[in-house]
Design a protein around this nucleic acid. Sequence first.
DNA 1: CACTCTCATGCAATAAAATGCATCTACAAT
DNA 2: ATTGTAGATGCATTTTATTGCATGAGAGTG
Lengths: 251, 251
Amino acid sequence: MLTAERRRSIMQILQRDGKVLASELSKALQVSEDTIRRDLNELATAGELHRVHGGALPRSPVTASFTERQQQAPGVKAAIAQAAIGLIRRDQVILLGGGTTLLQVAQQLPPDLRATVITHSPPVALALAVYPEIEVIVIGGKLYKHELVTVGAATVEAYRNIRADLCLLGIGSLHPEVGISTFDLEEAYVKRAMIASAAEVVALTSAEKIGTAAPYIVGPLSDLTHLVTERSVPNEVLAPYRALGITIVRA
Amino acid sequence: MLTAERRRSIMQILQRDGKVLASELSKALQVSEDTIRRDLNELATAGELHRVHGGALPRSPVTASFTERQQQAPGVKAAIAQAAIGLIRRDQVILLGGGTTLLQVAQQLPPDLRATVITHSPPVALALAVYPEIEVIVIGGKLYKHELVTVGAATVEAYRNIRADLCLLGIGSLHPEVGISTFDLEEAYVKRAMIASAAEVVALTSAEKIGTAAPYIVGPLSDLTHLVTERSVPNEVLAPYRALGITIVRA
DNA sequence: CACTCTCATGCAATAAAATGCATCTACAAT
DNA sequence: ATTGTAGATGCATTTTATTGCATGAGAGTG
């Protein structure tokens, strides 16, 4: 039996049973557990399944990509979120993007904040539901399962009809020359619409994303009014942003 | 049973019942309480739940107060949800309402179901995000915090532009003469729009809601094509619904 | 304060995983 | 045919994870 053939069998069994055990696969496919483990690791690296001790489970888009990242650098993200919250003023109309950093923002707002918050991220919307004085507006659309945000024409259209005071956005890539960019086209459209609808635009980004570029351009750096990032980012890296009049906030 | 699998079960039970006890989980999952405690601690560290003495609670206080109501009769709601799922066929376009019963539906769908599901409930949308073959459309609007659904003109308008095969709705009150009614005006509008947009309309309702009326009329009983309710409901109570040609499904 | 239930910790047994190494096979070039 | 090479496989060994149990500390209740 060919290697690729065996791996296909593993995927089929996984789909059929909802889980696979390394020991069982070894018997069923007549190869050693070492080989099975190698297969499982390769498949996990390729993102086809979720490797766990003893076997593997189907890759669930939510638990895999979203909650997993939540753990990566919790301290840093919380600090950035906290710093961004300092820019919010009472009674504003605020656009909140998706992603784990913005979820942190939604969770850490002052309990008595009075504001209108508009978001296209269901998890952010749920986090906001605890605040009695916040009016929450959900923007609909097609749900992107890995980011847990809505996208598409309906989403963009909805943002177009809004005039907000403030927009808080998680940014995937920032580059002095390329500008704001992201790894997903649909998300780029949504972010562009959000930026166009807000008077002040705040980018939240961790240190390692500054100076990088991604395939899809959201807009020029001059779209931003504020940049919230880690304390550790060296001054010279931030110079081009300051030169554009962007207010830098260090968490 | 795999460790990761067991933790996933714990999260499911937590979501279903609104709380978990270490002692009960130990019996239900056939492992020692030590293992359960370790699981709960790990899940708490990962931010997936809120660890408390004796067991654990959902992480977010929102979903807590929301799922708390599920404790009242978790078995009944799960059974009604399961029965309603039997009406779903592959590749349909389905409207899902809000509320705890519909959340149960979203959580108990067959893992490989292929369909398009449209909902104005963020918790339902998140529950649907785990299904790889389901396209999820979120309907936006103003967020109603107690029901965790969106309402308002945007919501109604969005549903108006949709033609669905099936609509699954939680119903607050059903009365042979009054028809379908609810305690909230905004929700009445949304439900009306959903009913108007679907070929088949399925009402999910527990026994005690049948024969009651509420201030805001959604529409006549003849809007319904199916009624899913508890097995215990006596036949004579259901007679007027049967007379209208409504298919009765007993959970 | 006394009682019970729950929890944390260290420990040992077991299962699973990673690693390095030898062997085997398929395939291509000579 | 044979030689070389890359990849796949199995085995031995070491390392790491998981689990249940015992002990004592701690929390909750009346």
